[in-house]
Design a protein around this nucleic acid. Structure first.
Ligand SMILES: NC(=O)c1ccc[n+]([C@@H]2O[C@H](COP(=O)([O-])OP(=O)(O)OC[C@H]3O[C@@H](n4cnc5c(N)ncnc54)[C@H](O)[C@@H]3O)[C@@H](O)[C@H]2O)c1
Ligand SMILES: NC(=O)c1ccc[n+]([C@@H]2O[C@H](COP(=O)([O-])OP(=O)(O)OC[C@H]3O[C@@H](n4cnc5c(N)ncnc54)[C@H](O)[C@@H]3O)[C@@H](O)[C@H]2O)c1
Lengths: 234, 234
DNA sequence: TTTTATATGTGAATCTTCTCACATAAATGC
DNA sequence: GCATTTATGTGAGAAGATTCACATATAAAA
């Protein structure tokens, strides 16, 4: 893993940093607080609401270059704005979704993406029948993929096609300029080094819960549970 | 976060360990290799197929107490069996799914859960109309939740209800003996310490890809990309 | 204005995870 | 049957993440 060349396709196994995941939690919390009319927060407020420590909150802010007011905490509004900038949320993001099967359909109807400035501008499917399904978002044949990606300057795609087609479709997406893929198919895609892939594997998510539940049921004392917690990166 | 008491509800923020995630990758790879008729693997085979280093594979095996044959690698069959045991896959796991909206419907139709010994024995919805939707799996009213959980000894639930109802439904599930929840609603649930919650937040998954794509597009030299990779825990 | 109380921001310490390196065991070849 | 080759398994060292601890700035109080 020392030498990386852009043109060589390779398995991508990006893992989202925990600090970034936590930042998302803080933001969700801030949005709620703002709606409630709260003007100021402290690191321990966010900590309580998100199940982390206050130290961690401040350290995370430090990592992302976010500064508050000594002794005065953070202005909710200001903090949110800083985060919007970090996450490029001041601008809209156009997405395409490939595969209008069960999962694709659900995702295409999910209103929260739009609420967060992420617009699925079009969906695609190889099956002409799927292309007739009623949806707020147009369903096109794969032939129009390049045209739409160019027109809407799409950089990120959601991939919800069967496992068997995932690599082939990913190759096409990348050829047309896609730089980021959220992949729901349970395969590791081979992509050039400058393409970001986030694999969402729901089977694994379920199985890990089953795994931890089994572990938990074997535990009884409080001391043991502490060890188990560590094992789960609580 | 030092003192934990079972009866006090708290925000749970379990994070699945990366080593466990990698074990899932190895297993998926082994299943494929077995289908292809491969009998023996080496740590570097798995490494190549999953985008990690051979050292890491062996270290992970070491953590989970998996041993191979010196110089001889690992028997695919034997290795898979050991993993099945670790993940309790020799027995079936009964699940319930709450919320037969867009997401719930997609999940209820996902055949891979069954392939992996995870059976959604019943789904539930508050809406009588949803209860009439055609599905292979029965859709019940919430009134029958306890009965089904007891009958099928269900320990793990999939939660796909709107954000606003998620906590309330989770409370009910836990009251009826559920010990693990895969939560699709974008809220952190407050649960007793012996209940495992895995939050799947698809907005966050998307946003993090957008975040990394932006970062990637600012990078051009190979040296910088190395730093970026580190930042993404490649 | 001065004092006091308190929350931030960040190095240092600790704990965890990953990488490296190599002794070791066992197949293969001679 | 002995030498050689090669992959494992694991300590040791490096890198990374989290927690601790406290100097510092500043809002609030007096
Ligand atoms: N359904 C779920 O809940 C679920 C959960 C997790 C993961 N997944 C994964 O998501 C993917 C889709 O799952 P699904 O349940 O929606 O499957 P599905 O079969 O319902 O849908 C797949 C869709 O992709 C289309 N398609 C097939 N090949 C294509 C191609 N080459 N180009 C464009 N479109 C193509 C099909 O016409 C179909 O509409 C699968 O990889 C699956 O493993 C699904
Ligand atoms: N649709 C998606 O692609 C998607 C993606 C990510 C996350 N989610 C999340 O998953 C959850 C469900 O999303 P959705 O799109 O399926 O929404 P939806 O509105 O289509 O479905 C929600 C279902 O839950 C049922 N419900 C509501 N209150 C209930 C209660 N108290 N008990 C039992 N059932 C109840 C409703 O009748 C409805 O059928 C939401 O929290 C959403 O944020 C959805």
């Amino acid at each position: 893993m020392k030498i990386k060349i852009f043109d060589v396709k390779q398995i991508t196994k990006y893992v989202i940093k925990n600090s970034l995941k936590r930042i998302f939690l803080y933001r969700a919390c801030l949005v709620r607080l703002k709606l409630m009319g709260v003007k100021k927060v402290f690191s321990y407020t966010l900590a309580n609401e998100t199940g982390v420590t206050a130290d961690q909150v401040r350290k995370d802010f430090s990592e992302f270059g976010i500064k508050g007011n000594k002794r005065g905490g953070y202005e909710v509004e200001e903090l949110l704005e800083k985060m919007e900038n970090i996450f490029h949320r001041n601008k809209d993001h156009n997405l395409v979704l490939i595969g209008m099967g069960n999962m694709g359909l659900a995702l295409s109807k999910y209103s929260r993406f739009v609420q967060r400035n992420m617009n699925i501008v079009a969906t695609f499917d190889i099956d002409p029948f799927k292309q007739k399904i009623r949806s707020d978002i147009p369903v096109y044949s794969m032939g129009r993929l390049k045209e739409i990606i160019d027109r809407f300057r799409v950089k990120v795609a959601i991939l919800a096609v069967p496992e068997i087609s995932a690599q082939e479709v990913a190759d096409e997406l990348i050829r047309f300029g896609i730089k980021g893929i959220v992949n729901f198919a349970p395969v590791l895609l081979k992509v050039p080094a400058d393409v970001v892939v986030n694999n969402v594997n729901l089977c694994d998510e379920l199985e890990s819960v089953i795994y931890y539940v089994h572990k938990m049921m074997k535990v009884d004392g409080l001391k043991n549970i502490e060890i188990l917690y560590r094992d789960m990166k609580y």
